[in-house]
């Protein structure tokens, strides 16, 4: 199996730097798929993870959407949970302390329905001990703008990030939605507004119906698709975002194994988040970590930095200029 037996001796360095954020490894769990961490403690050692991104938090508790909230689709699932959460006060009082004791860096995902809500949430979390960074979910409707999704408009997305930036000194990650025409534009706007890091993608807008009852399968009618079905879309988005901005990017979307995670790192993501796969195998994140380590050993690489962003998009015959021209001729 090992191509280079000498190289397997050393333990590869998995640590990564994402702007102001330093992580012992690039594998995190995605918001909304890992609860508040505690739910998974029986299945894996939380302390092994690069970070845990907790379920999205709002200022006030939210009951969530009426059921059915999920439906399985080919190699994926659609959810319309409705951002059910305990609210920031309960989170700080009874969820965060337990998770901190597990020795894992905590990233708090936040969302609101107005710019002011985002800002207030950020300032409440700013003072709390044991939070490494905030991840801003901008895939929410702006109630003051007729319910338009913040993350689909560069100006509106930037306003949220600006307001959060003014409210906290914590590293800021902005989580991008793929449901836009030019994701790079949104990426540039939120980086200009002060986002230190970007993560992509959130779920893909989707729908499922039942031909017998002639009803939508979700009470909310539409929802967000996740799972392996979206991985190629997520990979393309990550690649585009990496090329559009000069800040670190976290790749998310349908990662179920080490090879999937490495795809995102290859196109330039500096870390990944594991989402839906946590539901199917609660130990996925740790297995991915072990898989990445083995891959680096087999490849004879000293650390993950030697692999990140090394995608080779050059011509097939790099030493023959004629071949490159031949390929160029095919371009319009």
């Amino acid at each position: 199996m090992a191509q280079n037996p000498q190289a397997t001796a050393a333990v590869p360095d998995l640590s990564v730097r994402l702007g102001p954020l330093r992580l012992k490894n690039p594998v995190m769990t995605a918001s909304g798929t890992f609860g508040y961490g505690e739910e998974f403690a029986d299945f894996l050692d939380l302390g092994c993870l690069g970070a845990v991104v907790v379920k999205g938090i709002s200022l006030l508790p939210r009951p969530g959407n009426p059921p059915p909230r999920i439906v399985e689709t080919p190699a994926g699932m659609i959810n319309a949970i409705g951002l059910e959460n305990v609210g920031v006060e309960v989170f700080l009082a009874s969820r965060l302390p337990g998770l901190r004791e597990r020795g894992v860096p905590v990233i708090v995902n936040i969302f609101g329905n107005t710019v002011e809500e985002y800002a207030e949430l950020a300032s409440r979390l700013d003072g709390a001990a044991g939070i490494e960074a905030l991840e801003i979910n901008i895939s929410c409707p702006n109630v003051k703008q007729g319910g338009m999704i913040f993350g689909t408009d560069p100006a509106m997305a930037a306003k949220v990030v600006e307001a959060v930036r003014l409210s906290t000194g914590l590293p800021l990650i902005t989580k991008l939605t793929p449901n836009v025409t030019r994701i790079g534009e949104i990426a540039r706007a939120v980086v200009d507004a002060g986002s230190d890091i970007l993560s992509c993608i959130n779920t893909v807008a989707a729908m499922a119906v039942d031909i017998f009852s002639r009803r939508p399968k979700l009470a909310n009618v539409m929802g967000g698709l996740s799972g392996p079905a979206i991985r190629p879309v997520a990979l393309r988005c990550t690649y585009e975002v990496v090329r559009s901005v000069n800040v670190p990017v976290i790749g998310i979307g349908g990662i179920t194994g080490a090879a999937d995670a490495l795809e995102f790192l290859l196109v330039g993501a500096r870390a990944v988040q594991v989402g839906t796969a946590n539901f199917i195998n609660p130990a996925t994140a740790v297995e991915i970590l072990e898989g990445i380590e083995r891959f680096l050993q087999v490849q004879g690489l000293a650390g993950i930095e030697e692999f990140i962003g090394t995608l080779d998009t050059g011509c097939l015959f790099p030493f023959a200029e004629e071949s490159c021209e031949w390929i160029d001729l095919k371009q319009p």
């Binding site: 739910e39 059910e84 946590n278 609660p282």
Partner: peptide, 17 residues
């Protein structure tokens, strides 16, 4: 019973009013 993704209280998909 309900459709459910995780079974351990993480996905919040198996809600009942």
């Amino acid at each position: 019973e309900s459709l459910m993704a995780c079974g351990i209280g993480a996905c919040l998909g198996c809600a009942l009013p």
